[in-house]
């Protein structure tokens, strides 16, 4: 049982920067950034290839720079070429498939055998034993979360938040939305790529299809986390990403081991969670309307019997 929890914790933390990136792009900037899938593999490919040539540490910032570049391209297509943001993300994502294959030396799968990774190096310091992987990931994730929260409180961060909140107001207060959207998407994709970079080195492998559906899983994690922490502030949003990611992996692990839900069904379930959660405000509105309609009808019936109909 402890082993299951540990695995869930490990995977949850490793993947938690994806929901955190989506928190920035989807929640803060209000853009559904579909660059995510390809960007995750891009980060993993760069980091694994760097580890393969003996530069695992350098591979991490390089992977982030690669992710930021992918984000920049999406932002450029969206803001300058006026392509809708969803399509801009899909375009970059599609192009990245080829780029990723190229980075991986035109092979669909690269493995690191007996090569040093940031994890093996950290483990060789020999003071945390089995938990060193979890601790290192936690350190990185906590640092990123702290930097993100702090950044969103700066002048530039506030401008980015306002861009997603009220673009009319942003234009009237001397902020250039092209600039804020670009910075936001670069940062978000750098986080996604960092997640990919950690996963790649942790699992010592990268697969060209390793990012498929990760944007939906990330959204599910974010939404799960938000139900747990609330979504009123930036701090809560960033924490929700981490908490949600861990909860999701625990659910995943429980499914895997108990076979309550066959694992093959998990992506369908994930998709359903995301669809329902995002549709929730609309569903609630619909329910309220139905209730009002019923009250109206029963109220009228009450009025016909001689009441005033207001109490119904």
């Amino acid at each position: 049982m402890l082993y299951i929890l540990k695995t869930a914790l490990e995977l949850g933390l490793l993947y938690s920067l994806v929901p955190m990136a989506l928190f920035l792009s989807f929640r803060v900037l209000n853009i559904a950034d579909l660059t995510t899938d390809g960007c995750f593999v891009f980060g993993a490919a760069v980091s694994v290839q760097m580890a393969a040539i003996g530069q695992p540490i350098l591979g991490i910032p390089l992977a982030m720079a690669a992710g930021a570049l992918a984000g920049f391209i999406t932002a450029f297509i969206h803001t300058k070429m006026k392509v809708p943001s969803i399509l801009a993300g899909i375009i970059t994502n599609t192009g990245l498939y080829t780029i990723n294959l190229m980075v991986m030396g035109w092979s669909s799968n690269v493995s690191l055998l007996k090569k040093n990774t940031i994890y093996s190096m950290f483990k060789s310091l020999q003071f945390l034993g089995d938990w060193s992987g979890v601790v290192l990931t936690l350190l990185i994730v906590a640092l990123v979360a702290f930097l993100l929260i702090s950044f969103l409180g700066t002048r530039l961060g506030l401008s980015i938040r306002a861009t997603g909140d009220n673009i009319d107001m942003v234009r009237a207060s001397s902020i250039n939305p092209t600039f804020t959207i670009t910075v936001g998407l670069c940062l978000a994709n750098a986080m996604t790529a960092l997640s990919g970079a950690m996963v790649g080195q942790y699992q010592k492998t990268v697969d060209i299809n390793g990012g498929t559906g990760i944007v939906v899983i990330g959204l599910a994690c974010l939404i799960i986390g938000e139900t747990a922490t609330g979504r009123r502030s930036v701090k809560k949003g960033a924490i929700a990403a981490i908490v949600g990611s861990i909860i999701y992996r625990i659910i995943y692990a429980v499914c895997l081991y108990t076979k309550v839900i066959p694992v093959e069904f998990l992506k369908l379930l994930t998709a359903a969670i995301v669809a329902v959660a995002i549709a929730f405000p609309a569903l609630r509105k619909m329910a309220a309307f139905q209730k009002k309609k019923m009250e109206h009808t029963s109220g009228r019936a009450f009025a016909q019997k001689g009441g005033d109909g207001k109490d119904a």
Binding site: L158, S159, R161, D165, N166, D168, M169, V170, S173, I175
Partner: peptide, 22 residues
């Protein structure tokens, strides 16, 4: 509704406006 960012605080909104001088 057009002149302010609803999910940000009063303080943060004013800070955005103050950016012009900054």
């Amino acid at each position: 509704l057009k002149g302010t960012a609803p999910s940000m605080t009063i303080e943060e909104n004013l800070a955005l406006a103050y950016l012009r001088s900054a």
